[in-house]
């Protein structure tokens, strides 16, 4: 059984990374039966808490588990689900699976980037949106698919994009 470090581990807190969030993560890690093989699970939780995985959070996890920071970064950078950059309030995911691609998802993505003036994984100036290109969300019957947070928009046309964006600007 592998246990987390029992000594107190420095929490590199600042404005964007408040103490409560670190405490929540710490409680989660301390509550695990074993931390053997649990790194990915812990990073999922950390990303859920902080929204992203900046260097300080990665280092905290490494120290807490007593493993090298490089090992944590190795895992974070390997998987596309983990992000080291903060995200906007809403994440617009454009499905780039094959089914969506042959129905023009690449054009939707280009147009969306133009409209919001950002590239993939960047935040708009007002902090509202981040664009992500994702691999197959499995709704191939509705291709091309755009997801805003958890809501799926199917059979999206270029001219629908304005409506979709605007509906989130108000709310």
């Amino acid at each position: 059984m592998t246990q987390p470090q029992s000594i107190s581990v420095t929490k590199p807190m600042h404005e964007d990374l408040p103490e409560e969030k670190f405490n929540e993560l710490e409680a989660f890690i301390d509550g695990m039966e074993t931390t053997k093989g649990a790194l990915i699970e812990i990073l999922h939780k950390a990303q859920q808490i902080f929204g992203f995985l900046p260097r300080d959070v990665q280092l905290y996890v490494a120290r807490k588990l007593g493993i090298p920071g490089a090992e944590v970064f190795g895992v974070v950078s390997f998987y596309s689900y983990f992000t080291t950059k903060p995200r906007g309030k809403h994440t617009i995911s454009v499905c780039m699976g094959t089914a969506c691609f042959v129905r023009g998802a690449d054009k939707i993505l280009e147009r969306l980037k133009e409209k919001l003036g950002i590239e993939s994984n960047e935040i708009t100036e007002d902090g509202l949106f981040t664009i992500k290109d994702v691999r197959c969300v499995g709704a191939c019957g509705l291709a091309p698919v755009v997801m805003v947070d958890e809501k799926v928009f199917g059979r999206v046309k270029e001219e629908d994009l304005d409506d979709i964006i605007n509906s989130y600007k108000k709310g």
């Binding site: 990915i40 699970e41 990073l43 689900y81």
Partner: peptide
């Protein structure tokens, strides 16, 4: 259950 994190 173990979760993947997006890697083909």
């Amino acid at each position: 259950i173990k979760y993947g994190a997006g890697a083909f």
